[in-house]
Design a binder for these strands. Structure first.
Lengths: 143, 143
DNA sequence: TTTCATGCAAAGGATTTGCATCTGT
DNA sequence: ACAGATGCAAATCCTTTGCATGAAA
């Protein structure tokens, strides 16, 4: 639970982004904003207890990503994860239990320019940085 | 084409890793070693022209990754990419055409330790860093 | 009212798995 | 000979799509 966001705020956010504020979208975005980290579509839909369909979740998430309100994370091989847009940050993923922790950004300034040169690309617009390791809980269990 | 690797070398590599050097595995690993970047399983299998089955490719790649001879890359949402293990490095991905270019490592020393502290993890063992942008070719076409 | 979103079910694509057969060691 | 690998086909899992209906503006 990151913030406590009012339903009306969520509705306004959707409309500002040019999206219809349907019951389903409001519910989904509200859950996303209340989540403490990346969430799977299935988890999102299940936690809504039937408030919307899985297909709707996918379509809504697409719309949210397009509108810049959500971000798609590529971590697990098989399933997509989504999080509400916020400060640029990265993640630490426990390779044992899958737990994900947010990490504040820490790539040195100017790295995009260097990578652009090194790659021969015309432009670098974004990057993803994920750390993998063992969380405290799993480390304890392993002993 | 990175290196020119002999078939016998590939066989030895497999055996050293404790894997049976079957015709299929040798062919696959040889292709992987000769590839200039991450390859999809489908591409790998197709380029083998029937030397091995798609299922075999998946099973072989699993074995190679487990043995540390190959690495799985999470880039695209829908399909897995693999590359032969080599120096630690990263990638620049063209968001238009999907072209992938290798980038030499450039994360500052000590970042793992900092991330470990920040995340509360017991240990950080690895990380992935991918850059996204537009390659020169696509930039030209867009004009 | 007009346009766009939803639910449901069917389709799609990638990856995995069961099983009989074949191969490396 | 034996353990393990392969091919083929069926099965799974995640995600997308078509279409008739329902809801937002």
């Amino acid at each position: 639970m990151k913030h406590r966001v009012g339903i009306d705020t969520v509705q306004a956010g959707l409309r500002d982004a040019g999206l219809r504020a349907t019951t389903q979208r409001v519910a989904l975005l509200h859950t996303l904003l209340s989540s403490s980290g990346p969430v799977s579509v299935e988890a999102l839909t299940k936690s809504s207890k039937g408030a919307y369909d899985l297909a709707t979740a996918y379509r809504t998430l697409d719309a949210l990503v397009l509108a810049g309100l959500a971000k798609r994370i590529e971590l697990s091989q098989g399933r997509a994860l989504f999080e509400a847009s916020s400060e640029h940050h990265h993640h630490a993923v426990c390779t044992t239990c899958g737990k994900i922790v947010d990490i504040d950004a820490c790539l040195p300034q100017g790295i995009d320019a260097r990578v652009q040169k090194a790659s021969g690309f015309a432009a670098i617009s974004d990057h993803s940085l994920e750390f993998f390791g063992t969380c405290a809980g799993c480390a304890k269990k392993k002993v």
